[in-house]
Amino acid sequence: MDGFSTLKVNDDGDRLIVQLHRPEVRNAIDQTMVDELHAVCDLLEKQPRVLILAGSNGVFASGADIAQLRERRRDDALAGINSTLFARIARLPMPVIAALDGYALGGGAELAYAADFRIGTPSLKIGNPETGLGILAAAGATWRLRELVGEPLAKEILLAGRILGAEEALAARLITEIHEPDALLPAANALADRIGRQDPLAIRITKSVFHAPPEAHPVIDQLAQGILFESEAKFDRMQAFLDRKKK
């Protein structure tokens, strides 16, 4: 995890804290950052842990790098440069927490939408201004945002360029907590601590089942439960619960 030029990575044992770091362009997502985030995914797919994604210098990510975006053509769009990465992040075995400060716009917002949890600061501005640049939000916003906030608000954001402040995002449940900037990462770590108190295998399987298509239920739920019913952690944790009840 050393040698990155667009990321600051802290391996904290049961979690990986990754800060986007291109301060000269407000952490705009360029090809190098995409490649480095793929390297992070490589590690987390092999060694599943919670991922905390954050920005730096008071900004999460101002969007995709417009200088690079302007030069991309049809074949680049069909390659799904950002959408492929964000889908991979959404599929990571363990939960992903996005800690959002300042701007989370365009591709930065779509990266946040791919996370399992989003928390923010009072200065948060989140939304998708892509249509103002003559393109669409093609890295997940057109379908993830509707799932997250509902169709009416999603259309305001995607079709009318509405940018949400922190309180609006909280009211829409797009984020679940607001913290001052110096408390943002501690809050993300506190959430990671709560996740860490659960059984890791149960977390991984629950996340997979949660994202399964509707037609896969209830069969996939029953098969997943069958796996967990045979795990040692299930017996150990339930026995510990029963022992506490006896006291």
Rank of each mutant, 00 (worst) to 15 (best):
V59N: 15
M238V: 06
R244V: 05
E167R: 10
Q47F: 09
I157E: 02
P181I: 07
E24A: 14
I163F: 06
R70G: 00
D65Y: 10
D221M: 08
H38T: 07
V18E: 04
F241L: 15
A87E: 14
D236T: 13
E177N: 10
E147D: 13
A79V: 01
G108D: 10
Q239L: 14
N189V: 14
P214E: 02
Y103L: 15
G127P: 07
A190Y: 01
K46F: 00
R15S: 02
R194S: 11
I89K: 03
S231N: 07
P48F: 01
P152R: 00
Q222S: 04
D42M: 11
R73T: 14
L51F: 02
N57Y: 05
E130N: 12
G13L: 06
E36S: 05
E167S: 12
L78G: 00
R49H: 05
L51N: 02
A188I: 10
A61Q: 13
N10E: 15
L185Q: 03
S123F: 01
L111S: 08
I17V: 15
F235N: 15
G140P: 04
A28M: 12
E36M: 12
V18P: 15
D14R: 13
G196Q: 09
A188H: 05
A188K: 00
L159A: 12
A190Q: 15
S208I: 11
G102H: 13
W143R: 12
L133K: 07
L148P: 05
T176C: 03
G161D: 00
I17G: 01
L53V: 10
T206R: 09
P213S: 01
R26N: 13
P200V: 02
G58D: 13
L20P: 00
P218W: 08
A224F: 06
Q68R: 10
T6E: 09
R237K: 14
T176P: 08
L100F: 06
L170M: 14
M33K: 11
R118V: 13
H21I: 11
E177K: 11
N128W: 02
G80R: 08
A99W: 02
S83V: 12
D35S: 12
G226V: 02
V149L: 03
L85I: 13
I220K: 04
A212Q: 06
D65R: 03
A77C: 03
A112I: 10
E71S: 14
A192M: 03
R204L: 02
R118Y: 00
I175G: 05
K207I: 00
T142A: 12
I227Y: 09
A90S: 15
E168N: 06
V59S: 06
R15D: 01
L85M: 08
T142R: 15
P129I: 07
G165Q: 05
L51E: 04
E215N: 01
R244P: 00
A114F: 10
E151S: 11
K8H: 08
L124H: 04
R73L: 09
L16D: 01
G55K: 14
V59E: 12
E45W: 07
A172E: 09
R146E: 13
I119W: 10
Q47R: 09
Q225G: 14
A160M: 06
D116K: 06
D76Y: 06
L53E: 05
I135L: 14
L185P: 00
D221F: 05
A192W: 08
Q31K: 10
Q198M: 14
F210V: 01
P93Y: 02
